[in-house]
């Protein structure tokens, strides 16, 4: 019976790690995808887009599996609600990353050269926010004292991403390289979309901070 119980624990632990690996990879693919799009490397971009689509489906499957195991085996009854809440909200990070690449793939906005670096920087900051929220989530499971450090990092990257987003939006409406108003709006829309990833990461981090307080002994 003990062996059976230990294996359940091990499987669940590895499922949670696998899910968090997926979220972390989604952040990395987002950055790579945005870079490939800006550099007009279509093949690389489409590869990233396909990867993130598969990743999103897989992440959903793993999350559902964790949920079922938690309830079916009556594991962690005290923190079950918080763990599921955390996994569900962090899953929206993956969804948001996928949506950014999907809309880039469909709408194909024309991004002027002078804004290319800002877009890359914005995606990198969002990617860092995702990475930090994943590390914070890992700390929630294994090293509760560290959660706040990662939550603070997420806040920092989100704030930085906000700054770059504002710069991009100003540039979109002041540059003389774009003539059509609709194109200016289109670029503003994409700046908001890429920055949204860091906003979602921040809202997960806020929940994480509360869950960490509740978990402290």
């Amino acid at each position: 019976m003990k062996g059976l119980f230990t294996s359940k624990v091990k499987v669940l632990e590895s499922n949670i790690n696998e899910f968090l690996d997926n979220v972390c990879n989604a952040g990395l693919i987002l950055v790579e995808g945005v870079k490939a799009y800006i550099r007009k490397n279509t093949e690389r971009f489409e590869q990233s887009y396909n990867e993130i689509c598969k990743l999103e489906t897989h992440a959903d499957t793993v999350r559902r599996d964790i949920k079922q195991k938690l309830y079916y085996n009556m594991l962690i009854p005290e923190s079950r609600g918080d763990v599921l809440g955390l996994l569900e909200t962090i899953d929206t990070v993956v969804d948001t990353c996928e949506k950014v690449l999907e809309q880039l793939s469909i709408e194909q906005p024309d991004i002027p050269e002078e804004m290319a670096q800002d877009f890359i920087e914005l995606s990198e900051l969002s990617g860092k926010a995702v990475d930090s929220v994943v590390q914070g989530s890992r700390a929630f499971f294994t090293n509760i004292k560290m959660v706040n450090d990662f939550v603070n990092k997420v806040h920092f990257y989100e704030h930085e991403a906000d700054q770059v987003e504002k710069i991009l939006k100003r540039k979109a409406f002041t540059t003389d390289k774009i003539q059509q108003f609709s194109r200016r709006v289109h670029i503003r829309y994409f700046a908001e979309k890429v920055a949204l990833v860091s906003d979602v990461a921040e809202s997960v981090a806020e929940r994480l901070a509360v869950y960490a307080i509740k978990r402290r002994m």
Binding site: V9, E13, I16, L75, I76, F141
Partner: peptide
């Protein structure tokens, strides 16, 4: 640094 699930068990 024990995992939450293991700690629960």
């Amino acid at each position: 640094r024990i995992h939450l699930v293991r700690l629960d068990s």
